[in-house]
Simulated assay, not measured.
Amino acid sequence: MATGADAFEAIVLAAGSGARFGGGKLLAPFGDGVLLDGALAAAFAAPVSRVILVTGARGEAVEAAARAYAQRAGEDRLLIVHAEDHAEGMGASLRRAAAELSPGCAGVFVFLGDMPRVPAAVLAPLAAAVRAGAPAAAPVFQGQRGHPALIGASLLPQLATLHGDAGARAILKDLGPRLALVEAADDGVLFDVDTPGDLDAGPYR
């Protein structure tokens, strides 16, 4: 795995309040841990030199949960930053994370903290697509585009200009056929948790 310049990095967006869930969504029990653990597991499974987790609502508790997971997993690639203006939406979190990317970063995977079932098998093909020249890549399942997106180096400056809650969609929307699409083997690239009932789907199998 490349490190430093010419390496991929990962961002995990974990700043939301989880209002539709009733609050505290990322800390809800899921599998053998909490919901956030699934997103962190996927991020650490990606071919990245570092994982940048962005906190916001319940920042101290989310940070503690992330550090506990990293310690259990034996991971020392975790950087945690706080988005003071997180209430604005995902744009604020992505701007905050963009400020921490290493110079010469080859691209960044964008994971959502409430998506715990991203299959690790899709991550290397996303990286290969960008290494081969695509400006960005995303997984698809049964024709529906999912997460995480991998944003290549040429598009990274746009992360610092994002506003509102569109997230990476605002960067990908104008790429058309230049966006590399990688077929995923299951719906983990689409599955997210919005309400407590969604937790019944269980962790990634």
Rank of each mutant, 00 (worst) to 15 (best):
D200R: 15
A70T: 14
G152P: 04
G188D: 11
A106T: 08
R58D: 15
L35F: 13
L179R: 07
G33R: 02
D6A: 14
A41Y: 06
L36K: 01
D192K: 08
A14W: 04
A7M: 06
F30I: 02
P116R: 03
D194Q: 15
A87Y: 07
K173F: 02
A127F: 12
A68I: 01
G197C: 06
G133N: 00
G176H: 12
L179V: 13
P119E: 09
A134L: 09
T3G: 15
A15V: 00
A43Q: 13
A45R: 10
R58S: 12
T161Q: 14
E183W: 06
F21W: 09
P103S: 06
K25D: 09
G167I: 01
F44Y: 09
A97Y: 12
L159V: 13
L159W: 10
A97T: 12
V193F: 07
Q71A: 15
G18A: 11
I11M: 09
V189T: 02
A41K: 07
L79E: 14
V34Y: 05
L78C: 06
G202Y: 09
V110A: 14
G4H: 06
G38V: 03
A73C: 09
G188W: 11
A70S: 13
G104W: 12
P148Y: 05
A68L: 11
G31P: 12
D32E: 15
A128M: 03
A201I: 00
A46M: 04
D165C: 08
A184F: 05
V62E: 00
R95P: 08
M1I: 06
D32H: 14
V62N: 00
I171H: 11
Q71W: 05
L35H: 10
L101S: 04
L112G: 11
L123P: 04
G24N: 03
L94I: 15
P103I: 03
I151R: 04
I52S: 07
A128T: 10
A2G: 02
P119M: 08
A61N: 01
T195I: 11
A168W: 01
A45Q: 09
L35K: 08
V110Y: 11
A98H: 05
V130M: 08
L78M: 05
I80S: 02
F30N: 02
S154Y: 01
V189N: 01
L27P: 00
A66Q: 06
A10V: 00
A153S: 15
L101D: 03
L172P: 05
F111T: 06
A42W: 04
R131D: 00
A66C: 08
G167F: 04
A153Y: 03
L94N: 03
V48F: 00
R96M: 11
T3V: 08
R117I: 02
G176T: 11
G18V: 06
A45Y: 09
R72G: 13
A73K: 07
V62A: 00
Q142P: 00
G176V: 10
G164N: 11
V81G: 02
P203C: 08
A124F: 05
R50V: 04
L172R: 07
